[in-house]
Write a protein that binds this DNA or RNA. Structure first.
Length: 492
RNA sequence: CGGGAUGUAGCGUAGCCCGGUUAUCGCGCCUGGUUUGGGACCAGGAGGUCGCAAGUUCGAAUCUUGCCAUCCCGACCA
């Protein structure tokens, strides 16, 4: 029983790590801050990626691929962006190794092979992409340009955590160019909606759509929109961002187009991204002390069938019956695995698939076959039921849908219970310390106040919700007048 | 990068303070058999540069120094 996992209560961080590693999503690698995404974890990412990709294409985007390396001179062109990422850039300075004359069998960097210009490994691709767009855009007829890329990026983080913050991570980044400000803003919010739809509908994680304060804004953006999710320990997690970049990058890279009046204008830009971090959100939003809980719509495996053999002669009987079910499930587009491996007994398999979060488990033995039933177990509630073999595949299809809903509803209820209003500083601090979650409070709108609150409580303004109601109040810290509440939380 | 902890077989560990035969135990793994409705049992077997590198010593898992990695708490961040 080396697979026991730490409980959330005992050590939330350890619980999270146990799920990632023992659930076989990912592992630490021998590269500092970088993880190996294992087949089960990668299958999850593929499902997420495929769904997002469909949604991007449905909204008119196409995929392309830009280089991993960004020449330093391009990288520094948009000053705010460069400054924001400068501290966490890996930089390639040489292009060759050679044998170490003083140490046989070892290699050293060849000092003769220094690059004329250093190459920054992209922490994000605005620079290289806008440098490219300059050559692609001349006329208003070239706009809008709606491009996405699936890529890896590197951010040299001080402290890393599996999926939540790794030095290298996988993501997608959309980079669009528009003729008007209005159209660019519309694109920004449209993609935010796509993200919210994906995260809620497929990952079953409820999110709050909002806009960031200047302090939390993406370096080089005019406005950063975000979706914020709440984890079971009461900490918030930024699940995706969509930036309105104004004309900052167009000006930095001199990307202009001729409008219908034959006048030159700078184009308007957006960028938006979600990453493998979403997997961290998925884990922390749903899972329990028995392991992962995968939402059926993106689960790497939706159904597992475990045979309960009784003697050698029972095997072909059960195998044959299972084959019928497997065929029916596949016909409905349900992913299914028949685990008839002999090296583990049923109890072990039950525990294993619970750890991995497979939504539905089917157990079938001779006893069931005699009664023309199976035992169904759902991962989210751990309820078991005995169900007729007739119409079973359809029944499972419905059950998967029900589980998807149930997981979302549970996470939504938790999230909603954990948004609390604070009207005094004491109340604010007490909620953060005793209950965590989101705290909805008035803020005077200044960066100074935001900084002070962060300093004193570690809480940041996660966002100003898009559907915020306007109400007069007094800033929680300074008592200065405020026109709306904003959402504070401690965050990942 | 600052503070704290850890690193012994695939995993979890004993031994380290006080250096001394062949490095302990459990799980897992392999072979054979019996099994299978919630993490099976019996018998036999394989598996170790004690994180890496130097140093002290007749002798280092154990002492010293440096490095690497991981975890926790800060700063930074998607």
């Amino acid at each position: 029983m080396s697979k026991e996992i730490t409980t959330r209560e005992a050590d939330y961080s350890q619980w999270y790590n146990d799920l990632v590693i023992k659930g076989e999503l990912a592992d630490h690698s021998s590269v500092r801050g970088c993880m190996v995404i294992k087949p089960y974890g990668y299958a999850l990412w593929e499902n997420m990626r495929d769904q997002l990709d469909k949604m991007f294409k449905a909204t008119g985007h196409v995929n392309a691929y830009f280089p991993l390396f960004v020449p330093k001179s391009l990288f520094e062109a948009e000053e705010k962006n460069a400054e924001g990422f400068a501290k966490e850039c890996a930089v390639v300075t040489h292009y060759r190794l050679k044998n170490d004359p003083n140490n046989k069998g070892k290699l050293i960097v060849d000092p003769e092979a220094k690059l004329e210009e250093e190459l920054v490994i992209r922490p994000t691709s605005e620079a290289i992409i806008w440098n490219t767009y300059k050559g692609w855009i001349q006329s208003y007829r070239d706009l809008p340009l709606l491009i996405n890329q699936w890529a890896n990026v590197v951010r040299w983080e001080m402290r890393t955590r599996l999926f939540l913050r790794t030095a290298e991570f996988l993501w997608q980044e959309g980079h669009t160019a528009h003729a008007t400000k209005e159209e660019a803003i519309e694109e920004t919010t449209k993609m935010l909606d796509v993200y919210a739809e994906f995260v809620e509908h497929y990952m079953a994680v409820p999110v709050i759509k909002g806009v960031k304060t200047p302090n939390e804004r993406f370096a080089g953006a005019e406005d950063t929109y975000c979706i914020e999710a709440l984890m079971q320990d009461g900490k918030a997690l930024q699940a995706g961002t969509s930036h309105f970049l104004g004309q900052n990058f167009a000006k930095a890279f001199d990307v202009q187009f001729l409008n219908k009046e034959n006048k030159k204008e700078f184009v308007w830009a957006t960028s938006w991204g979600v990453s493998t971090r979403l997997i961290g959100a998925l884990i922390m939003a749903h899972s329990d002390d028995q392991g992962l809980i995968m939402p059926p719509r993106i689960a790497p495996l939706q159904v597992v069938i475990v045979p309960i053999y009784k003697g050698e002669e029972s095997k072909p009987i059960i195998d044959d019956k299972v084959a019928l079910l497997t065929r029916d499930l596949k016909a409905l587009g349900i992913s299914v695995k028949y685990d008839n491996s002999e090296n583990a007994r049923p109890g072990w398999k039950f525990a294993e698939y619970e750890l991995k979060g497979v939504p539905v488990r089917v157990a079938m033995g001779l006893r069931d076959i005699e009664n023309n039933v199976v035992e169904l177990a759902r991962r989210d509630t751990k309820e078991k039921s005995t169900v007729s073999f007739e119409g079973l595949a359809l029944h499972i299809l419905q059950l998967l849908e029900e589980i998807q809903q149930q997981i979302f509803n549970k996470a939504l209820a938790f999230r909603n219970e954990n948004i609390r209003e604070a009207n005094t500083w004491d109340e604010f601090v007490e909620i953060l310390d005793a209950k965590a979650g989101f705290v909805s409070a008035h803020w005077d709108g200044t960066s100074e106040t935001e900084d002070k609150i962060k300093e004193q409580t570690k809480a940041t303004i996660r966002c100003i919700p898009l559907d915020n109601k306007q109400e007069n109040g007094k800033c929680i810290l300074t008592g200065n007048p405020s026109t709306q509440r904003v959402l504070f939380a401690r965050a990942y």
